[in-house]
Design a protein around this nucleic acid. Structure first.
Lengths: 208, 208
DNA sequence: GTAACTTTACCGAACGGTAAGAAAGATTAT
DNA sequence: ATAATCTTTCTTACCGTTCGGTAAAGTTAC
C-alpha cells in the first residue's frame, strides 16, 4: 500500500480511473465528488477502484501527483525560451491553459482534506514540478538583471498567484455570469499570458 | 421564505448560526461542512436551524451575503484616503486581513454548489459590496492620471486576484508547511499590503 | 493451476431534512 | 389578578438516501 504511493501508476485501469477523477475533483472539490461519481465516469465498479486505491484520499493524492507531473513537464518545456520575458510568457501560457487545473483549488483541497503524510507528498510534488521551474526562470532573470526588487521565491509565488487569478477570471463560462458591472465587458484576450506578464513586469502605473 | 432572502437577518439566533457557520464554510468549503457541524458550533439543535433557514443552501447564501456586507463596509471605509496609492493600500489591508475570508474559495463554492437564483444574488452582492468600491478607486486613479494602460474593470479584477494570492501565501499556518524550497524562507511582512500595491503599481522589472 | 483482475451484493455510519410537540413569553378574556 | 389562548422559538425522535468501504465469488489470461 505505502510503497505504491511512491512509484508511478502503470496499470491502464488505474490511469483510466485517475483521468476520470481529475476533472471531477478539480471542478467540484474533494468532498463534493463521491466515489460513485468517479466509478460512473471511469465506467468501472466500486471494488475495482478499491483494488487499485486503498481509499478515497489515496485516489485524490495519486490524481494530484499525476496532475502535477503533467503540468510540470509542460512548465519544464516552457523554460526553453531565450529571453526572460519570453520564458515567463511561455510559463504563463501553460498555467493559463484551459485544460490545466485550478492549482489554487488543488492547494486548498490538499491542505484541507488530506492527512499529513500524503499532504507532504503533494507539497513536495508541487514544489518540485510546479514551483521549481518557475523559480529557476526567476533566478536567471535576477542574475541577468532583467528582474529586481524581490527574491526569486517571492517572485515565483507572486507569478503563480497571478496566474491563478487570471485563470479564474479568464474562464468564459464564469465571465458570462459576471456581466453585471464592468468586469463583464472585457473579452478573453485581455486576460491572456501576455497581459499577465506585462502586469507582472511593468505594473499599471501611468508612464511605466 | 423568498422575501426573507432579500431582507436582513435580525433574529439573534439566526445571526449566531450564520456566524458559527462562516468560519466553517470558509475553511472547509460547502460540502465538507455538514449541518451537524454547524449546529454543534452554534450550540443549537437541527430543527432550530431549519426554523430559520429552509435548507443548507440558503444558510450558505445568507452566510455569504452577511460576509460580503461586512467586508464591503470595511472596503468602503478604505476608499477615504487622499492619494490613489494610499487608498489601494487601505483596500489591500482589508482584503488581506486574517479574519477576512478567502474570497476565492467563496467564489468557487457559490458557482459550484449554489443554484442559479441564489448564485445570482451572491454575484450581485459580490459586485455591489466588494467589486464596486475597488472599481471606484481605479476609475478615480485613471481620471487623475496615476493609473493607466487598462480599464478600471480589469484593474479591479487584477487587484482582487492579487489579493487572493497574497492572502493565501501570507497565511503563516500554511507557510510553515511550505518550508521545502525557497518559499518557506520569507517572512510575513514581505507579503503585506504595501508589497502588493508596490507590485501592482510598479511591477518587478529592473529599474522601475 | 494460478495469479491478476473485476463483479454482485451488501454493511454500518453519516448525510440532509422533517413530524410532532414542549417551553416560553406576550396577549387577551373574565 | 389570573386563567386561558396564541405565537414564537426550540427540542426529542425519527425518516429515506447516500456515503465510503468490504466480503466473497466469479472471470480472464497465461
Amino acid at each position: 500500500m505505502h510503497e505504491q504511493l511512491l512509484q508511478p501508476i502503470n496499470a491502464p485501469t488505474a490511469v483510466k480511473i485517475i483521468e476520470a477523477a481529475m476533472p471531477l475533483f478539480m471542478k467540484r472539490g474533494y468532498t463534493a465528488v463521491s466515489i460513485s461519481d468517479v466509478i460512473k465516469a471511469a465506467e468501472i465498479t466500486k471494488p475495482t477502484l478499491y483494488y487499485y486505491f486503498s481509499d478515497k484520499e489515496e485516489l485524490f493524492v495519486q490524481m494530484g501527483l499525476h496532475l502535477m507531473v503533467m503540468m510540470g513537464g509542460q512548465l519544464q518545456d516552457a523554460t526553453q525560451g531565450t529571453s526572460t520575458a519570453e520564458r515567463l510568457t511561455a510559463l504563463a501560457r501553460v498555467l493559463l491553459a484551459e485544460r490545466n487545473a485550478d492549482m489554487r483549488l488543488m492547494r486548498h483541497e490538499m491542505f484541507e482534506h488530506v492527512g499529513p503524510a500524503n499532504r507532504d507528498l503533494l507539497v513536495r510534488a508541487f514544489y518540485t514540478h510546479l514551483f521549481a521551474p518557475i523559480e529557476a526562470v526567476m533566478t536567471d532573470g535576477l542574475a541577468t538583471g532583467v528582474l529586481a526588487r524581490y527574491p526569486a521565491g517571492i517572485l515565483s509565488a507572486m507569478f503563480l498567484g497571478m496566474s491563478d487569478s487570471f485563470h479564474e477570471f479568464g474562464q468564459q463560462a464564469r465571465l458570462a455570469q459576471w456581466s453585471i458591472g464592468t468586469v463583464g465587458h472585457f473579452a478573453n484576450p485581455m486576460l491572456g499570458a501576455e497581459t499577465m506578464v506585462d502586469l507582472f513586469l511593468n505594473g499599471v502605473r501611468s508612464g511605466s
